[in-house]
């Protein structure tokens, strides 16, 4: 493990030095809130945030992506993305979520690999930023994460008073730090102690959700009428699924202009919409919002456990913060687990 300290104001210098030809992404204070964007100077970066509004999944799995193009009836492949990225400032929950998306898009059986997503991931360095003050809606520690979790990160950074403490957690992270080694000062004992204390404090302050036995529980109560009750207020807007860092559902459609040139594109889709599962015959296996919300919860807390061995929720709290009717997934889980 490599460790090193820089002054906050030297962050861009460090990132750009180590980046070489790579693009640098970092959190900026955007129009609609905190977002990840390609940056070119220090003053664009903000460190004053608990998390971004949209999850950083869009860097690797964009909301709209061209899969191939065609002119008349002939198809042309597009180059799979070649650009290499450095992404700074991803929170540990979102870094963990990338490891889940990796499982979906790489497919452990190795039959179908998604070249668009995987190419971007292959070439990326993830530098995540440990949380000092989790939000009231955060619950990462209840779903296997931590405010200073390392999974999915190549480097974990602690924000100290006017400094940043870098700690590599993968070979790629170590290489990155080596490339820019001249810019790092040695990490002193008090830096490490401060980081450790901060991590403990963040963790201890987090409310704990008791999800023991939840999978077995939800598997058993699939038909319970309680599902109607807990999903009654849902508008079916799908905001929760678009914001969720682990949701990966998409649609594939063709777009064409008058000259007969076109694109096959994939766009984010959501299990909260009736058309998502509508058969051509008019039959629909999930006709109402109870069934669709049940699908969202079962998918995250049961099906992915069967298929990938993981709960596909990292406790980022976005779905709680931004739901227009304040539907709280923690309440739903609690209610179900008490059934």
């Amino acid at each position: 493990m490599a460790q090193g300290v820089i002054k906050k104001e030297d962050l861009y210098r460090l990132l750009s030095t180590a980046a070489g030809k790579k693009k640098v992404y970092a959190p900026i204070d955007g129009v609609g809130g905190i977002e990840f964007a390609e940056i070119h100077e220090q003053k664009e970066i903000t460190l004053d945030y608990s998390n971004s509004k949209l999850s950083p999944k869009s860097i690797f799995f964009p909301q709209r992506e061209v899969l191939c193009t065609f002119a008349d009836d002939a198809l042309e492949e597009v180059q799979t993305p070649k650009e290499a990225l450095i992404v700074f400032g991803i929170r540990p929950c979102d870094a963990l979520s990338l490891t889940y998306l990796d499982k979906v898009f790489s497919d452990s059986a190795g039959r179908f690999k998604d070249p668009y997503y995987l190419k971007r991931r292959e070439n990326a360095v993830i530098i995540s930023l440990a949380c000092k003050e989790p939000r009231a809606t955060c619950f990462c520690t209840s779903v296997g994460g931590s405010p200073s979790g390392k999974e999915g990160a190549d480097i974990l950074v602690y924000e100290l008073a006017d400094k940043l403490l870098f700690e590599s957690c993968s070979d790629r992270g170590q290489d990155f730090m080596k490339t820019a080694s001249v810019l790092f000062k040695q990490a002193e004992e008090d830096h490490k102690t401060a980081a450790k204390e901060q991590a403990e404090k963040a963790k201890d302050g987090m409310p704990v959700l008791n999800l023991n036995g939840l999978k077995e529980r939800v598997d058993k109560v699939f038909e319970d009428p309680l599902w109607d009750e807990i999903t009654r207020n849902c508008l079916g807007c799908g905001a929760c699924t678009y914001l969720c860092p682990t949701c990966h559902c998409f649609d594939i459609t063709d777009e064409e202009n008058r000259k007969g040139e076109g694109y096959r594109i994939r766009t984010w889709d959501s299990c909260q919409y009736p058309l998502f599962t509508l058969h051509a015959s008019g039959h629909n296996p999930r006709v109402n919002k109870k069934q669709r919300m049940r699908q969202r919860i079962m998918h995250k807390y049961s099906y992915t456990v069967d298929n990938y061995g993981d709960i596909f929720c990292v406790g980022c709290g976005r779905c709680i913060l931004y739901c227009p009717v304040n539907l709280d997934i923690r309440d739903m889980l609690n209610t179900l687990n008490k059934l």
């Binding site: 179908f112 594939i252 058969h279 998918h299």
Partner: peptide
């Protein structure tokens, strides 16, 4: 079975029956 499909390769998420 004939659930609605898109990707056909287990990624787009719409054709599931349980897990």
């Amino acid at each position: 079975l004939e659930n609605r499909m898109k990707c056909g390769i287990g990624k787009c998420g719409r054709c599931n029956v349980g897990s």
